[in-house]
């Protein structure tokens, strides 16, 4: 009996803050802007405008995840080899303590026509380039913001890796590349998956950066949700997009989730 009593706060929390909002979102998605029950929002979602927006969002989220992984894996690997692991790790986590808005504003200054980066380009003879409001800067800043969430799970996976397995591989004559490909990478795959989830899912619904860094030249589903709720006050359409975002996220979780139920452990 007591055990159930301890679980009450947990169930209350899940019910109030997870289940109820999801039901509310689904409920709202069936109402048009005048408040009548209809499926018009779902029809609108399947028009070229929103389908293109969906493809765009997935494309940028994919780019951001791929770039993060490309940088994060070697970084995490090197981290496990360094002397002061905890200190380096702390330095990587530190930027996540800074407010996102502040970081975005900092990049506005850095990437501006007369900003520090362009001053450097000018000095080394490349010349001033337009950095702000481009696809490049959008992906760059997003990667910068999300990369700690990719490094951490990979780092943990690498730390847990038993070094004697690597020694064994080397003893049996595997080259460095083969050891990595056949031993290290498969054994850290769970960390990679966790990292990809932690980056892909939030970047799918990214919104503020699309205005600040990309100057609304990149429009994602997140931008549309924000606009429908705050400006148009078309809650139904905003909720409908949110429903599709939830479906997308759930399927990504299912695809990359651990399929090792009962197999190992």
């Amino acid at each position: 009996m007591r055990r159930y009593a301890y679980a009450i706060p947990y169930w209350l929390w899940i019910g109030l803050f997870v289940v109820a909002p999801i039901i509310l979102i689904i409920y709202y998605s069936f109402f048009d802007i005048e408040g009548h029950f209809s499926l018009v929002n779902y029809e609108t979602f399947f028009t070229p405008v929103y389908l293109r927006m969906t493809v765009n969002s997935f494309w940028y989220a994919f780019l951001i995840t791929a770039c993060s992984l490309l940088i994060a894996y070697p970084t995490a690997y090197l981290l496990t080899k360094t002397k002061h692991k905890q200190l380096w790790l702390l330095l990587i986590i530190l930027p996540t303590w800074v407010n996102l808005l502040l970081k975005a504003y900092a990049f506005l200054g850095l990437f501006g026509t007369y900003g520090a980066v362009n001053a450097l380009f000018e000095a080394i003879g490349i010349g001033t380039k337009q950095l702000l409001f481009t696809d490049f800067s959008f992906v760059f800043v997003s990667v910068y913001i999300f990369i700690p969430f990719m490094i951490l799970p990979i780092f943990n996976a690498l730390e847990k890796l038993n070094p004697s397995l690597i020694d064994a591989a080397r003893d049996l004559g595997a080259s460095e590349w083969t050891t990595f490909r056949r031993v290290i990478f498969p054994l850290t795959l769970d960390g990679v998956k966790a990292g990809c989830q932690a980056v892909f899912i939030p970047s799918l619904s990214l919104f503020m950066l699309t205005r600040l860094i990309a100057g609304n030249r990149v429009i994602t589903l997140g931008t549309a949700v924000e606009q429908h709720f705050l400006v148009t006050q078309n809650w139904g359409m905003g909720a409908t997009i949110a429903v599709f975002l939830m479906i997308a996220m759930a399927s990504i979780m299912a695809l990359t989730g651990n399929k090792k139920w009962g197999v190992r452990q």
Partner: peptide
């Protein structure tokens, strides 16, 4: 059109962006 922005527009224009 270079960008469509919010209140930052004041800073961006003053900085001759």
């Amino acid at each position: 059109v270079k960008a469509i922005v919010g209140d930052e527009i004041k800073m961006l224009l003053a900085n001759e962006e």
